[in-house]
Write a protein that binds this DNA or RNA. Structure first.
Length: 886
RNA sequence: AGGCGCGUAGCUCAGUGGGAGAGCGCUUCCCUGACACGGAAGAGGCCGUGGGUUCAAUUCCCUCCGCGCCUACCA
């Protein structure tokens, strides 16, 4: 026995994990080789926000691709998995502005330069948190190539893209109604808006029609409009009705007097007005509503801005309301109208309201100058890339979601009124207002030579993220990395950023590289809690991956995530499950300990002629499992691969093979020793992509350990090991053992007590097969003596069982406890057999079935029928032998 | 309003056009020299409802019920 090779008594993940993280890093095992001649496999890590701390969503999204990368690497691919972080402008702003607020400061007070200095300091200090947490997960990333979306090279790529698109006319500046978050102080793109259903109100307001006879007894004529946002009426510049609406035909061309502002506004007609909704007349506020904005343009209406960018009412709202918060103003407007008798009624009304995706404030439509990407020309090729199958979504049903959005895509607003980010490379002439866009700051206006001011805004974070797959590889330079690793092979991410990120990467990758950025898009689900709720801080139902790692080990966490990862499905994470896989890790550990304890000084060699049944069986199973795992991983069926491994390791290798091997090892069978060691070695390597730490630890103790399991060859399937005969015979042996155990247990024979087992011979071949492996039955079933005979020797009591083709008999002393249940046990079994038999008989008696079902199915049913007849006969005999019921 | 998805064992989830599966939990027994994070033997399910296709449906199609998500300019 080699003392050095032995494992500690119990597996303690923490020190082991720390050791191998360092080892992998020091040895440079995950560094991609730009000059390799081997086939490549590349991925870029979806860059987590620098503000981030690792949560379960990360853990899932990083574990699954890591499994694939490790698997590919072991198969000999030149792998690159490139890490990095995203500057996350809004998220960082929120963090820093909060810390400023604690000192009574605002970003305006400290100024742009100071603010950026603070942000960079902050990034330097905390930006590494998430990356160090990623290492703990065991993610096999190439840290030598780590990037940041605002590092100099990447910034150059961003500018390059902006300038190119501008020169091509695909980026333009426009005065447009956009979404603005009053709290974050910036505009947002359409997809950064979350729609939430709110319980709101619908206010019905009367606008006096101008020219109606106020002095007449009939009184003033009114037109009533319905609105969910009464405060915007201060900016109304028209009332719209449907052109064919008879109720309002007499108002065409008339004007109404806007209450509270005492302004005359026209009645216009437009087919977009729904006659059925509200009163069929709608107030028009071009500066504060997307539809009204369009109407306003069409009808040449004035745009009166009554709410500013921070959600406060402007002077244009009138002296009574100027300076009020928009919601306070709403209350005041309603109150005023009521006093004036202009509020007809108020109804409850539920509707979807846009909220900021970062801070959840209610979005305000806001009229301002912004930069946009003309998206159609970019979207079309991106649609074709998916239609043609060049890019494949997994699972495929996300394709539809992608198309849905891409077909209806709107121009992308990319400017943000923030400081942390890529500043827009546009300059405006102070004198002639000329706009210049360039990579480097121009000296003076190219038209009039006047002084220039750079645009104050930065770009949408997602504008830069969209370049990630090629910007990280050195683009716009034609680097070796770019040539070797682009396009990447797999992008694994959440469905929530298909629009934000995946679609943009495809569009920009095609535009600037002329090639797709990745072939497969693996969409993983959301990690939810056991009750399927989204994990959130406010719910207090967060399961913290780092806490789980501390408690159960990284391997258990990874295996849990893999086992629950059905492509595209949300997964409900339970701690119990994780505890189960911790036990699994422990099981592997102890099985390995057993194997190592039984290895001789010199490596054993498996001699083909000396393979035992168990050896041939486990080899056959290993071959099948190896093949199955490859197939599952090809299809990203992580749960299936994990399940296969779990079952194989625990219920085939540990429960059966190790127990069988003990029999051989006791006899000093070195072939069994060799097969045992080889099977463990293969198992460890099969498991490695899922559980890198424990397998590295074990692998390094095994004889013939290479430099690292992480770069050891992934086991090949060895189809020549398939041995159906061994599997059939083993099934026979296992059945006899199981039946014997069952009879023992149900008759309360103590585990320690040995019994004699008499087997009634079945066919010659079956009997010989079983007889050849009597030692296995004896050891595993607690049998002292195994004999073949038509009838057992005379005894006061004989327990009966049926195992496959065999009838079993166990003679016991009358004193054995609990013999009474035996009749019931057999009767119950018989009942099951009869019920099943009835079903099959019925099926086979159906001529349509026999005529139309596939031959194999019919044969299979016939075989089952015969097997059941046989079993029924044996059970009936057993029951009869017990004598009449008491 | 459209689109997507889910409803299978107590819980969390796989799976399949022809004998219902796993993990955890539960019951009984056992600390047998790898492992009590263990071993052995069990209990437990009209596979949401109603139709249709089929020789055969838990599986394919439709209706409905329940649940979740995404997209959306009826104020």
């Amino acid at each position: 026995m080699n003392e050095k090779r032995q494992l500690e008594k119990t597996y303690d993940p923490t020190p082991v994990e720390a050791r191998w993280v360092k080892f992998w890093q020091d040895e440079g095992l995950f560094v991609g080789d730009a000059h390799s001649t081997k086939p490549k496999f590349s991925m870029v890590l979806p860059p987590p926000n620098v503000t981030g701390i690792l949560h379960m969503g990360h853990a899932l999204c990083f574990t699954l691709p890591d499994i694939i990368t490790r698997w590919k690497r072991m198969q000999g691919y030149n792998c690159l998995w490139l890490p990095g972080t995203d500057h996350a402008s809004i998220a960082v702003h929120n963090v820093i502005e909060q810390s400023l607020a604690e000192k009574g400061l605002t970003r305006e007070k400290v100024g742009r330069d100071e603010f950026l200095r603070i942000a960079w300091d902050w990034k330097a200090k905390y930006g590494g948190v998430i990356t160090s947490q990623l290492r703990r997960l065991g993610a096999s990333l190439d840290w030598s190539r780590e990037r940041f979306t605002m590092d100099p090279g990447f910034s150059r790529a961003v500018k390059h893209v902006f300038v190119s698109l501008y020169n091509e006319g695909l980026i333009y500046r426009d005065y447009y109604l956009v979404n603005r978050c009053p709290r974050c102080g910036t505009v947002l793109s359409d997809i950064e808006i979350e729609h939430r259903d709110l319980h709101g109100k619908l206010w019905y307001i009367r606008y006096p029609v101008e020219g109606s006879d106020e002095s007449a007894a009939t009184g003033t004529e009114f037109v009533t409009v319905a609105t969910t946002r009464p405060e915007t009426m201060l900016g109304d510049t028209a009332v719209a009705v449907h052109p064919d609406d008879e109720r309002y035909r007499h108002l065409h061309g008339k004007k109404v007097r806007l209450p509270l502002r005492d302004r005359l506004i026209p009645v216009i007609t437009d087919e977009r007005v729904e006659r059925e909704f509200g009163t069929g007349a709608v107030k028009v506020t071009p500066a504060h509503d997307p539809v009204d904005f369009e109407l306003g343009k069409l009808h040449g209406l004035e745009q009166v801005i009554v709410i500013d960018g921070s959600g406060k009412m402007t002077d244009a709202a009138g002296p009574e309301f100027a300076g009020l918060d928009r919601f306070a103003c709403r209350a005041k407007v309603v109150e005023k109208l009521e006093t004036l008798g202009l509020l007809v009624k108020t109804e409850d009304y539920d509707h979807a309201v846009g909220h900021c995706y970062r801070c959840k404030s209610v979005i305000e439509p806001h009229l301002s100058w912004q930069w946009f990407v003309r998206i159609k020309p970019l979207a079309d090729p991106a649609i074709r890339a998916v239609e043609s199958g060049e890019i494949q979504f997994i699972p495929g049903n996300w394709t539809k979601t992608y198309f849905e959005w891409m077909y209806n895509i709107h121009d992308w607003c990319i400017s943000r009124q923030l400081w942390w980010g890529h500043r827009i490379p546009a300059w405006y002439c102070r004198d002639c207002k000329h706009t210049m866009v360039a990579m480097e700051a121009p000296e003076k206006c190219e038209k009039c030579g006047g002084p220039l001011d750079q645009d104050e805004d930065v770009l949408d974070t997602w504008f830069s993220s969209g370049l990630w797959p090629f910007g990280t590889l050195g683009w716009p330079d034609e680097t070796e990395d770019l040539r070797t690793f682009y396009p990447t092979d797999l992008m694994a991410t959440g469905f929530d950023i298909i629009f934000f990120w995946v679609a943009r990467m495809i569009m920009l990758g095609l535009k600037f590289r002329g090639r797709i950025p990745f072939r497969h898009v693996f969409i993983n689900g959301l990690v939810r809690d056991v009750k399927r709720r989204k994990m959130s801080k406010s719910e207090g139902n967060i399961i913290d991956p780092l806490e789980m790692i501390g408690k159960y080990g990284t391997d258990a966490l990874r295996f849990t995530l893999a086992a629950l990862a059905v492509p595209g499905m949300d997964l409900a994470l339970s701690e119990e499950r994780m505890a189960g896989y911790q036990a699994f890790a422990n099981k592997i550990w102890n099985a390995s300990r057993f194997v190592l304890m039984n290895l001789g000084e010199t490596p054993a060699e498996a001699k083909e002629g000396e393979l035992s049944l168990a050896d041939r069986w486990i080899r056959s199973r290993t071959a099948a499992v190896t093949e199955a795992i490859g197939r599952s991983l090809e299809q990203y069926k992580f749960y299936e691969a994990a399940d296969t491994l779990y079952h194989f390791v625990w219920h085939e290798f540990c429960d059966w093979y190790i127990e069988f091997a003990k029999v051989g090892l006791r006899e000093g069978n070195r072939t069994t020793e060799a097969v045992l060691a080889d099977t463990l070695g293969r198992t460890v390597r099969l498991l490695h992509p899922f559980m890198p730490f424990i397998t590295e630890e074990i692998g390094q103790h095994l004889p013939g350990a290479g430099r690292s399991v992480a770069i050891a060859p992934f086991p090949e399937a060895r189809p020549e090991w398939a041995d159906p005969e061994a599997e059939r015979t083993m099934a026979l042996v296992q059945e006899v053992i199981a039946e014997t155990r069952k009879v023992r247990t149900e008759n309360r024979i103590a585990p320690k007590e040995k019994v004699e087992l008499w087997v009634k011979p079945a066919s010659g071949a079956e009997t010989r097969a079983l007889a050849g492996h009597a030692a296995l039955v004896r050891t595993l079933a607690g049998v002292s003596r195994l004999e073949f005979a038509d009838a057992p020797p005379a005894a006061r009591r004989v327990l009966k069982g049926v195992a496959g083709p065999f009838e079993l008999a166990i003679p016991v002393e009358e004193t054995a406890a609990g013999l009474a249940g035996e009749r019931e046990r057999i009767a119950k079994e018989l009942e099951k057999v009869r019920a099943e038999l009835a079903k099959i008989e019925q099926k086979l008696e159906n001529p349509d079935f026999v005529a139309r079902a596939p031959r194999a199915v019919v044969d299979e049913n016939r075989a089952r029928l015969e097997g059941l007849w046989d079993r029924r006969a044996k059970l009936e005999r057993n029951l009869a032998s017990l004598g009449p019921a008491a």
